[in-house]
Design a protein around this nucleic acid. Structure first.
Lengths: 367, 367
DNA sequence: CTGTTAGCGCATTCAA
DNA sequence: TTGAATGCGCTAACAG
């Protein structure tokens, strides 16, 4: 059906083995032979058969990136960064000067072969089942690496299942990298300093003079949610404000609508609060919208803060105070780790710093 | 290294062929045998070797989804919808009742095998090279289908190259589906009615009484950009307002910052305009921010409209007038088409309707 | 209903 | 430096 290695070999008048060697480039081949083979490849528009290659070599060039919500820029940025690392390593050889005499519609996508991996994004939608399912699918494909991004679901059974899958993947040669979730065995981990960042954020508010601070948290069973909330509470406790906290916390999803609704609920519980901290920037946007709809000004009446520092946060109106996570850098690093291009951090775990970005949406309380 | 079909066969005391049949489920097998095999599969934690399977069957279960910008919800929604269609068809058999006596960390991801495809998202970042590159990678993997989403780059060479690749993919059995871009040969296409939607949107503004309407367009070389702009101009021309149009159009990227900058530029060119149409909702957000920063109210001083009707548009402040594209539905349909679960539309091309959503951000001009 | 027999296309020994 | 031979793990005819 399609053109195979053998076809190329025949046209180039060499053996299939030689063609294979030229294409993988990891074996000495005479320059003249090499040129002849490359020409045949071009003429025939040969494209390697991935499955066959993977079967024979017992490795594939697939890299899976699992995300909780593909529609959320938080994940989009990380995933995009991971993918950006997948290109060919340095200046590749091959390809060559021969600009085909070409018929209509010359190929353009030259690289018949290269060091490139196929980084693919898998959207779990936050569903544990789908997460496991994708892991199985990737295991089936004998993926070269798997990158799990974002907070993990804390349900014990699920955590155990993921850990088990990760071990099995690692055992069969698939590199497992975690980006933004707590470490597990057999995986290289890039954790985010969610707790520390959250603590510093609330301390910032405290320093400004706020005492009644509402908190809009994410889904209760996610590590990210828990850590950020814990950081918030730490700061509150240190300031001797621990007791009211529970009352001023509302859980929701990591989206704008939840922030809107939660704000209404918070206002109902305590009309006198002077600040609201959101578990992420998207929620914070909803918080701002709700506040405005209630005729409250930001930050004059109520200060608002988010988390992540997504692109839109800096130029929101007013500019949002938040905690910056270097998502792009983290993604790049996760990609390198997945390819084995970067040495493992000591202990297999590295923490990504979170930086407070104090902007216009927070100010001293009115009173 | 890993456990193979043969291992399972040995343990279940049947032939490899039988195991294969049980797993693929497309062939009659005695119930008792079937149970025995399934048990062996569970005991051994066997997972099919995808590459080997793909090689033997000459088909893979990979489906590629190409997007221009993974951080943009427009693509996130479509891609997520495509993926949501990839699960098993109906109520699958198999799996069975045997709750393994199990050691620690029971699997949970039952499906050892199913009709499921692995839908993966590939982020081109709008780069023609990367688009072609991904297409090659997917061809190499012998993907079952490829879905190209969003506007296409109009550079002639690139268009030809993509068309050529699509033909080659189609020829080798990969189904090619286009979602949100103009049709090409050998592909099933779902086009969006960008032109019609844009026309109706501008007509809406015209009907309200606006005469000086600014337009913030996307990148000049994209089909989506061109079609939406053409629709806008059609409406203007029909109203005899064609001539000022060029002057009141600014191009930028499909992001918030571009909307912000473009608005400042438009205001500079004509401080008296009463409405601004943005090429999409994200841009519209930037437009609104810029307008506010200039002390202009929406819609009292200037009306604003977007395109796409992304989730945040309905609850923006004020609610954004826009054109609704059923992105989720389109993605679902593209997914079905990619799997061959839905019959091709006549001529291989279907148009997705665009619906005007008149909301609070547009009103009659002040005067 | 089940086992046997051949490859699928490529990477890699081992010789030459 | 190159070619010939072997097997990766699985599916798909064929028999039985």
């Amino acid at each position: 059906m399609a053109v195979t290695l053998a076809d190329v070999a025949a046209r180039a008048r060499v053996s299939a083995a030689t063609v294979s060697r030229v294409l993988s480039g990891n074996y000495p081949v005479a320059e003249s032979t090499r040129a002849r083979v490359l020409r045949a490849v071009e003429d025939l528009e040969y494209v390697v058969n991935g499955p066959a290659s993977a079967l024979a070599a017992a490795t594939s060039d697939l890299v899976g990136v699992l995300v909780n919500d593909i529609a959320d820029p938080f994940f989009g940025i990380i995933a995009g960064a991971v993918q950006s690392e997948m290109g060919a390593p340095g200046g590749p050889a091959g390809s060559g000067a021969s600009n085909g005499s070409g018929g209509s519609g010359g190929s353009g996508g030259e690289a018949v072969r290269g060091g490139e991996k196929l980084a693919v994004i898998c959207n779990t939608g936050g569903s544990p089942e789908r997460e496991l399912n994708y892991l199985t699918l990737l295991q089936r494909q004998r993926a070269a690496a798997v990158v799990l991004t974002g907070g993990a679901v804390e349900h014990p059974d699920h955590a155990a299942a993921v850990a088990a899958k990760a071990s099995r993947l690692a055992a069969s040669g698939t590199r497992v990298v975690l980006c933004g979730r707590p470490p597990i065995e057999d995986a290289i981990t890039l954790t985010f300093d969610n707790r520390g960042g959250a603590r510093r954020l609330t301390e910032h508010l405290l320093t400004l003079g706020h005492r009644r601070i509402g908190y809009v948290a994410g889904p209760a069973d996610r590590t990210t949610t828990r850590h950020r909330l814990e950081g918030h509470r730490e700061a509150l406790t240190a300031a001797g404000l621990a007791e009211g906290a529970e009352q001023l916390t509302v859980h929701g999803l990591y989206d704008r609508a939840s922030g809107y609704d939660a704000t209404l609920e918070l206002l109902r519980r305590d009309a006198g609060l002077t600040a609201i901290v959101a578990a992420n920037d998207t929620i914070a946007l909803g918080v701002c919208a709700a506040l405005r709809d209630q005729g409250l000004r930001i930050p004059e009446d109520v200060s608002v803060a988010g988390f992540d520092d997504l692109p839109f946060s800096a130029d929101a109106v007013p500019a949002l105070t938040t905690v910056r996570l270097p998502l792009h850098d983290a993604g790049v690093r996760a990609g390198r780790l997945a390819l084995g291009r970067e040495p493992q951090p000591p202990g297999g775990v590295a923490m990504v710093r979170a930086e407070l970005m104090a902007r216009a949406s927070t100010a001293p309380p009115r009173h």
